[in-house]
Amino acid sequence: MSLQDWMSALPEELWDLPLTDLAIPGSHDAMSYCLDINSPLVRSESDCFRLLDKLFHCFTRPVIFRWTTTQDKSIEEQLSMGIRFFDFRIASKPDDPSNELYFTHIIYTYLTVLETLWSVATWLESHPKEIVILACSHFEGMDDRCHESLISSLKKLFGSKLCPRGESALSLRSLWASGYQVILSYDSKTAEGHRELWPDIPYWWANQHTAKGVITYLDWNRAMGRPEGFFVSGLNLTADRYYITTNPGQSLRTLTFSNWNCLKKWVEQQVPGSDPKSLNIIAGDFVGPLPLCSLVISLNQKLLKRNGSQTKKI
């Protein structure tokens, strides 16, 4: 089924619920599908790892690429598949005369930030009732001047589509009435002076390489109670360098796929809503080949009033 316009296809009973009560599919490290294998390492990598990469570049780069690639579909394809939360990690390249900004995950992408977000804005023009949540973070190598330049460009790009921080009515119906389509989270103090920007969105990251480890961590967080506002439950698996070294035939893709059935069963048991143990945004890796979007969106059926009224199927 097409999920390009799944928000407007939700039953009308759900149009007045806050977005924070809906189940929303998300993309972890959304731009890693276009990593540049020949780019420099990000600034935060250790000197030891830099030296290793310099001496054994032909060996390290394929390994880095296998374990940093979390997505294989373009931003437009992810949008059309139903993804509505995007994890964007932004940075400037060292010694780059162009002053362009890129996305990162150990290495840099070949697509720039502004050309990518222009694609998002263009897609939204064709889907006026779809709402996206863009979480911008990391910002390696960016000073205040660079932040202000980026923020100015983002405000110009999305314009009246940007939902102001603290907007009290965050239901689909109210956002449609106001013409808002973008909730832009910007994890930097620079954002405090711009009412169009929202603070960082909590992301529950397990830092585990097994589905069991991820689920144990997420269940522990659920037991502690949900945060205020938007929050993300990350299904993404993480392998440390010891695991990568001792499993040379694996990649993040093979690890994700081998653990998917267990993660899928856990997601099917979840319930969105305002309850302290309910979930909101559920993000994962390889959201194209794995049916994360349909799985998460279908959870919203659990929110429908049990009054026997006929509802549309999502």
Rank of each mutant, 00 (worst) to 15 (best):
W266G: 00
A211N: 02
I37R: 03
K212S: 12
H138T: 04
G273R: 01
L35G: 02
N99P: 01
L218Y: 02
R145A: 12
S294V: 02
F158G: 10
F103H: 13
T190M: 13
T216C: 07
S39R: 00
M7L: 02
M31G: 08
T210P: 01
W176R: 01
C146T: 15
Y186R: 10
L19K: 11
A9M: 11
K312D: 10
I107Q: 11
T254R: 14
Q250G: 06
N99Q: 14
G213F: 08
K189M: 08
D96M: 12
W198Y: 09
L134V: 10
P276D: 12
C58W: 13
D16T: 15
K189Q: 12
S2D: 14
L299C: 01
W123Q: 00
S46M: 11
Q4I: 08
D87S: 03
E148K: 12
I244A: 02
Y108S: 02
T60P: 05
W205F: 05
W123H: 03
Y242C: 09
I314C: 08
I183Y: 05
Q208V: 00
E115A: 09
L252A: 04
H209C: 11
Q71A: 09
V214W: 06
E268S: 13
D21S: 15
D219I: 01
P276R: 00
A206S: 15
D275C: 11
V296P: 04
W198L: 05
A135L: 04
C293M: 07
L41A: 10
Y203L: 01
T238F: 13
T20Q: 14
L117M: 13
L299M: 04
K305S: 15
A211V: 03
P97R: 10
I107Y: 05
L154F: 13
T112E: 10
S178I: 01
S39Y: 03
F257R: 14
I183D: 05
T246R: 05
L170K: 09
S74D: 00
A191Q: 14
A23P: 05
T254V: 11
E228H: 11
L237W: 00
H28G: 09
P62D: 07
A283F: 07
R43H: 13
I83E: 06
